[in-house]
């Protein structure tokens, strides 16, 4: 009587039934503490999460392409046009390029601000002052992460905008102010992820480098940073994803001009600020409303692109 896994040779009539599983019936579901009931509840919740994600993507896509399918806007013109003039009756034009340009410029500038400071702080925490640096900066990072974006916006409005105004002239509102605000906002995200990345570089490599007579900086520059590079990039890209989607803090300091700006200190707009400002004032189903949903769709697509980029980078990180 040799039995393989998954087969049964038990005859219910003959052997004792103490250890034999009962048939699953509705009673096992109704009884409190039932194994199946817990399992079913868990699976319902999990499928709800999946359904939510799918419906967000689906609904926003359907709503976002309405301006092209229903209102007949030309997608190419929408993406490359530089005039956003929905109010004009004869020549209403919907060119989203200024906002796309604004979003990308602010994001890249913010990353340029946050990446060096963030990675520098991470190096300080992990390489220079391992114990007390960690103890000091960890809470700083955690508190900074928790500060709401409107507070960053408020600080930008009352400190950074006047500062730019006094230094460079103009109004002070513009992409530079927005980039500084968002850069500071994503700084803690970049710093904490970068610290994790650097921590995961094995200590033996550092010791090998020191044993060869390298200085601390040479070790950091030649050994630690190259080894952690894909993860460091992931940290920066994650920060950029956050910067790209930030709405209110940017809206408060960018000046909200619906044109392509000529310099960093002129008022401009981004995808998020346009949605923030106009969405509440449009009527459902109007062309402007649909065009705003299309801006939202661009945001959604960018989110997916960032996710794919992060996946690609983290796969690279694992290989090396």
């Amino acid at each position: 009587m040799i039995v393989k896994n998954g087969e049964s040779s038990l005859d219910h009539k003959t052997v004792n039934r103490r250890l034999i599983k009962e048939n699953v019936s509705y009673r096992t579901f109704l009884s409190r503490n039932s194994e199946n009931r817990g399992k079913i509840l868990i699976f319902i919740c999990a499928s709800l999460i999946m359904a939510a994600t799918m419906s967000i993507t689906l609904f926003l896509t359907l709503q976002g392409i309405r301006s092209f399918t229903v209102d007949g806007l030309n997608p190419i013109k929408f993406l490359t046009g530089i005039h956003w003039n929905p109010e004009s009756h004869q020549h209403a034009s919907y060119g989203a390029l200024p906002f796309i340009f604004g979003s990308f410029t602010v994001t890249i500038l913010a990353a340029l601000i946050a990446a060096p400071i963030g990675i520098g702080s991470a190096l300080f925490m992990t390489e220079i002052a391992k114990t007390w640096g960690q103890k000091m900066l960890q809470p700083v990072i955690e508190i900074l992460v928790g500060i709401p974006s409107v507070v960053y916006g408020l600080i930008g409005l009352s400190v950074i905008v006047p500062f730019i105004r006094s230094q460079f002239g103009g109004l002070g509102f513009g992409m530079l102010a927005a980039a500084i605000v968002v850069g500071i906002m994503i700084l803690p995200t970049v710093a904490s992820l970068a610290a994790d990345a650097i921590k995961s570089v094995p200590d033996e490599w550092r010791q090998a480098s020191y044993a060869l007579g390298a200085t601390k900086w040479q070790t950091i520059y030649k050994v630690v940073i190259p080894a952690a590079l894909p993860s460091l990039l992931t940290a920066v890209v994650l920060g950029m994803a956050r910067a790209f989607g930030e709405a209110l803090a940017v809206q408060m300091v960018i000046g909200n001009a619906k044109v392509l700006p000529h310099s960093l200190i002129e008022p401009a707009a981004t995808l998020t600020t346009m949605i923030t400002l106009s969405m509440g004032h449009t009527t459902d189903g109007s062309v402007l409303n649909d065009a705003l949903w299309s801006l939202g769709l661009i945001l959604l697509i960018m989110t997916y692109i960032f996710i794919i980029l992060i996946r690609f980078l983290s796969k690279r990180g694992r290989l090396s």
């Binding site: 009587m1 040799i2 039995v3 087969e7 049964s8 038990l10 052997v15 034999i20 009962e22």
Partner: peptide, 26 residues
Amino acid sequence: KCQGEIMYDGINLLDKKIDVVALRKE
């Protein structure tokens, strides 16, 4: 993966109809 026979009280414990929860109490 397990193959073979573990006889206990007249039944093979590797059988798939065994209630492992009850078994682990015994």
